[in-house]
Design a protein around this nucleic acid. Structure first.
Lengths: 351, 351
DNA sequence: TTGTAGGCGTTATCAA
DNA sequence: TTGATAACGCCTACAA
């Protein structure tokens, strides 16, 4: 019939014929844990090898309930944190026989298109690492029975599961460190003002700093767009006049912005960290630990977060309801770089 | 029959019933450029909207010749160059309605498993950005009629198309720059000694330097594993004795290794670039342009390379044979950072 | 343990 | 321009 110009791709029927069994038996031979006699299985596999047969996952996806494809939607691959996350997802999912369909979203846009595409492909689940999500789409995924998980962000919608670092707690820890190091005038570089991540990190920080208010701490907040360039621009703008005065410390709600700050302040004012000004970030990306930075930060446990996400997915597969949302906040780990004055030195350093 | 616990996903039949047309008409309504009367199309789309219908791409993949999925196999997401490439692939493919199935390969392993998985999913094409590939697999993809493209690497197999930067030419340019800046003792940090990329970059460099051999240039080569840590280790090992003597210049065949060199030499010996030692890299990754590095390098035109790759794919779709392999080497662009002595200063600098 | 046969949701051919 | 109907390649009751 010559319908498509297509592949002479071998099908299970041809293998069945060569092996002298039915097509169903071939299918069983390729299904882990299927009921099949060992000798038949061997015969099938031999025939398959001879014909260069491999199962058609598309057909199998159509016939069965699952595609073994997980959609991962990443917002912003300029931020190494998301790169590392994507990498971890691919690695772990691959290890368990799943596949990753990757989507990116240009900054500021909703990920509705990507979600819809994922739905069309009948993916087993959708993981969203950033970007907002409309209610319509959420209800569509519910209708389709496809779980959505948020990674590194939360949502107003309480029915959406999310895995994230303890941003509030991490912010608190950094606030304490900064306060103890003697800073009383702090500049905060926010990320996406809409996003839960930036908000929580700032809130924790403020609480820690105000908690201690034996001595008042002055805080100023500006927006850094969650990006290297955004941070540089914000810093340039903030300190543009002649003879600017600098705060004691800067808290960038993520590392990539902290790096941008450092570069800008070094280049224009030749400031030294922490001697002239302290700085802390959040995320623990590799770049922050390069020799010129050695940024003090909270390291997000990406691997643990990814594993937790996959665990949740598995749990959802079993029973729909028993997932406790609070179990999905994972504490970060303080990483002592060298951009904050050592506490032992506090007494000696402050004039 | 209740076969699967599965989705109440709406099918084209239900839409057809609601719209009062046949299923085939629904299919046409969702196929761009199909022969269908406008009023019927509107009716179908309205019904679809009402029912929350969206086409099942898996089914359509099975029935048609194409999945609209491209497999992208990346070796090493620790190297930002590959991250940027992956990002570009996802972005551009997404823009043209394709989807990316991503695979990663742990360093040193072949990508046969990933290729096989891709074949199972009947992807429209496979793009390999690194990692070796066995001949068996290549012939399987040929058998299946699925094109494989190599990105940023070449292969012995002349039938394999590959898109890459002009590594030889770039190496040459860097060699010239280094020579003109006065370096006569050069340390080369190789990447994967098996890989074509590293080999070509070194060969071009050597040619340029030896070409000029008015004055002899001494060259030494060591392996840096194509990675930041590998480079640091190699440098540490190379200069471990007391009072090591340094070359005039280092040529790292990629930026990430150059950054590793810089960090190691700064941390242990407090060397200044380019005053104490010159260094050049290759790739033009963003990290290299951070303020503490400003690395002199050749920038790979990632975007152009990716577009070229996709162009080739399209061409393959049309006619199998008319693709000229030589058209797939794209020149890089010299980027003058500040890690090589300025040429005007050469005369004044050399004692 | 194995084979038979219907169905998964489309696309594509063909006739109307 | 539309509608019937046969693929697409596999999975999975069900019967043997």
């Amino acid at each position: 019939m010559a319908r498509k110009r297509q592949s002479q791709r071998v099908t299970s029927y041809e293998v069945a014929k060569l092996a002298g069994v039915s097509q169903a038996t071939v299918s069983r031979a390729f299904t882990a844990g299927a009921q099949i006699a060992k000798d038949k299985k061997d015969r099938v596999l031999a025939a398959a090898k001879q014909l260069n047969y491999y199962p058609n996952s598309i057909a199998s996806s159509l016939a069965s309930a699952s595609t073994n494809i997980i959609a991962v939607i990443v917002g912003n691959l300029d931020n190494p944190f998301y790169v590392e996350s994507l990498h971890a997802f691919i690695t772990h999912l691959q290890a368990s026989g799943k596949h990753v369909l990757s989507f990116t979203i240009s900054q500021g846009k909703a990920c509705d298109d990507a979600v819809l595409e994922a739905l069309k492909y009948n993916v087993d689940a959708i993981i969203v690492t950033s970007a907002p999500l409309s209610n319509d789409l959420v209800s569509m995924t519910k209708g389709a029975g496809i779980p959505i998980l948020l990674f590194n962000r939360s949502s107003d919608d309480p029915t959406l599961l999310s895995v994230r670092c303890d941003n509030f707690g991490g912010g608190q820890e950094l606030g304490k460190v900064i306060y103890d190091a003697g800073a009383r005038k702090v500049l905060i570089l926010r990320g996406d003002p809409q996003g839960s991540t930036s908000r929580d990190r700032v809130a924790g920080f403020r609480l820690a700093v105000q908690d201690k208010a034996i001595e008042a701490v002055r805080i100023e907040e500006i927006d850094g767009n969650s990006s290297y360039d955004g941070a540089r621009d914000a810093i340039r703008e903030r300190f543009k006049g002649p003879n600017p005065t600098f705060p004691d410390a800067i808290y960038a709600v993520n590392d990539i912005m902290a790096i941008g700050c450092i570069d800008e302040l070094r280049e224009r004012f030749d400031l030294k960290f922490p001697e002239d000004i302290m700085i802390v970030g959040f995320d623990g990306i590799r770049e922050g630990q390069l020799q010129p930075y050695k940024l003090t930060t909270i390291r997000q446990p990406i691997n643990a977060m990814v594993l937790k996400t996959l665990e949740l997915l598995a749990a959802i597969g079993d029973e729909e309801d028993t997932v406790k949302a609070d179990s999905c906040v994972i504490p970060g780990r303080f990483f002592e770089g060298s951009t904050v004055t050592q506490m032992e030195q506090v007494g000696t350093k402050i004039p």
